[in-house]
Design a protein around this nucleic acid. Structure first.
Length: 526
RNA sequence: GCGUCCGUAGCUCAGCUGGAUAGAGCACCGGUUUGCGGUACCGGCGGUCAGGGAUUCGAAUUCCUUCGGGCGCACCA
């Protein structure tokens, strides 16, 4: 819709014209302050210029009115245009707002270590990533959702030891020393029980079996993570195992050429020449690779697979890591600017004002699955999707358990359900409704229709600007307008019943489509 | 100290590429249809957009700076 108007103006002025939606809808649907910027070069007052421009549009069929006010030019779309557009939207169903953008994108997110269940911080990145995935796909991009599994290195060794310690302490009743950084948590004692059943109790004491147990456990834990994600409607296309990549090591090192060097028995990457603070070790003196090494081969593999763009969603605590990975990509001979790293900031959780602490090692973590159990997947997803991801976030569980207008997800669902009830109650047949024409709309009805038809622009904007929260914000506003309209306007039995229902169908369509892009299913009844 | 993100109403947060009177929800106070689900709607209270400077017709938005907070600054992942 906006694109159509925008294109028209571009043609007329031969340049891109800023088009905005006036806060006060009595000004029209769109407005532009272009007269202000033209004032200087034309040596005329903005008002005079606006007058002239407005007059030149007066006969255009797309507009019902074009007026100039205090230098702004306000456009009001014609009813026939809106009606036509509404019919077009309804005929497209949930494809409304889709597009035919081209491009393949590899989207990597979550990638939590398979050493414990997901906690609430992971959930934020997961929801954000999945929302971007759904938005991007709706727009036509070919996106692969990938989970990188850190199943090599230290944390796997730690997992094996932790598992044995946990088993010996909780099952065999031994008193054991818990070193600070080892993993703790309920999931470990469950796993230890399984170990005893499958391998016998002696497996918990045999140090030589630590590795074997660790590898067994990480598969179990990964399966747990996958289940957790499924519970909030997130599924990945591919999982890439870090351990499986190391066969490529020599080839990748050779590929980096001068980008790496050996000093005092250690292998370094020359990342300081590409914006990093200093060069980083990739292979230790004893030959064990560092964490960075895994990421280097992984990103090499990503680029060899030949996507057009790459998006990584990382926790904010990894931001210092971006420079070195980009340096590696450059040394591997690829364009590092194709990798876009989006950071999701920390989450803290409140309950009655009391802050919860999150520490993976301490065993007092807030598990995502616990929160989902409390408030449900929909509320969790809506919550995280509504906040832009570069602000540290605090939220209170209790607020999200409410089932009234203070909880936006209920507010929106209720709007959708109200429409479905009206459709069911009406005697009008669907074909009558679809054939109805929208004309003589009140300003409330017009505002509601216009809002509902904005969905495509919102989707595009939310994805391209990587600001997922624009969609939830939009849905809140749309639902609010619907509720008000419902309150003010009698629909069943009115003269315009069919037309009004058509209008409401468009609203329902936008809500349903919008929610599905948030991984939430619209409800017909509540 | 360096890097990075942030600072908007008492609280949790929006505010699009600079534009018309800075917005929601919560909390608090008050109100609502002889009607389709009151799980709704309306009104009131509440702001030096952290402070200062710059850019310009115009800044919450861009730039610089000070202050305050989160995160990171490993041969840990």
């Amino acid at each position: 819709m906006k694109q159509r108007v925008s294109a028209l103006l571009r043609e007329k002025f031969n340049c891109d014209v800023i088009l905005e939606k006036p806060k006060d809808r009595s000004f029209g649907h769109f407005a532009t302050p272009i007269a202000f910027s033209l004032a200087k070069e034309l040596r005329k007052s903005p008002m005079a210029i606006a007058e002239e421009i407005a007059a030149s549009f007066n006969e255009h069929e797309m507009f019902g009115a074009v007026e100039s006010v205090k230098g702004y030019i306000n456009f009001r779309l014609s009813e026939s245009f809106l009606d036509e557009y509404a019919s077009w939207a309804l005929s497209h169903g949930e494809q409304f707002g889709s597009s035919d953008k081209k491009g393949s994108i590899l989207l990597e997110f979550v990638s939590a270590n398979p050493t414990g269940p997901l906690h609430i911080g992971h959930a934020r990145g997961a929801v954000y990533g999945d929302t971007m995935l759904r938005l991007g796909r709706h727009l036509g991009y070919d996106i692969t959702a990938e989970y990188y599994v850190n199943d090599a290195g230290n944390q796997i060794d730690l997992l094996g030891v932790s598992l044995q310690l946990e088993g010996r302490s909780s099952l065999l009743g031994e008193s054991v020393e818990w070193p600070e950084k080892y993993y703790r948590g309920e999931y470990l004692s469950d796993l230890a029980k399984e170990v005893v059943e499958l391998f016998g109790a002696e497996a918990l004491r045999d140090e030589s079996r630590q590795k074997e147990l660790a590898l067994w456990a990480k598969d179990k834990i990964l399966a747990l993570i996958v289940d957790d994600l499924k519970a909030i409607n997130i599924e990945f296309d591919t999982f890439v195992s870090e351990a499986s990549l190391y066969d490529e090591w020599d080839r990748v090192m050779a590929k980096m050429g001068e980008g790496v060097y050996v000093n005092e028995g250690k292998t370094f990457i020359r990342s300081s020449e590409l914006g990093d603070d200093h060069d980083r070790v990739v292979v230790r003196e004893d030959g064990r690779p560092t964490y960075l090494a895994g990421d280097i081969i992984y990103h090499n593999q990503k680029f060899e697979r030949g996507f057009e763009d790459y998006i990584n969603i990382w926790g904010a605590d990894h931001h210092g890591y971006i420079a070195r990975v980009k340096a590696a990509i450059t040394y591997l001979g690829y364009d590092a600017s194709k990798l876009e790293v989006l950071l999701s900031q920390m989450v803290s959780l409140l309950k009655d004002g009391e802050p919860f602490k999150m520490s993976k090692r301490a065993g007092t973590v807030i598990l995502m699955s616990d929160v989902v159990e409390e408030i449900g997947s929909d509320a969790l997803r809506f919550m995280f999707a509504s906040k832009k991801c570069d602000t540290a976030l605090e939220f209170d569980i209790e607020e999200l358990k409410r089932q009234d207008s203070s909880n936006p997800i209920y507010y929106i669902q209720y709007a959708h359900a109200r429409i479905q009830t009206l459709i069911a109650k009406s005697e009008k047949r669907m074909d009558e409704i679809m054939a109805a024409h929208l004309h003589g709309l009140s300003s409330d009805a017009d505002g509601l229709l216009f809002e509902a038809l904005l969905l495509p622009e919102i989707i595009d904007d939310a994805f391209e600007s990587r600001q997922a929260q624009k969609l939830p914000d939009y849905l809140k506003v749309l639902a609010g307008r619907l509720h008000k309209f419902y309150y003010d306007t009698r629909i069943i039995g009115s003269e315009d019943e069919a037309a009004l229902l058509k209008l409401l169908l468009v609203v329902a369509l936008s809500i349903k489509t919008g929610l599905s892009l948030l991984g939430i299913q619209a409800k017909d009844r509540m």
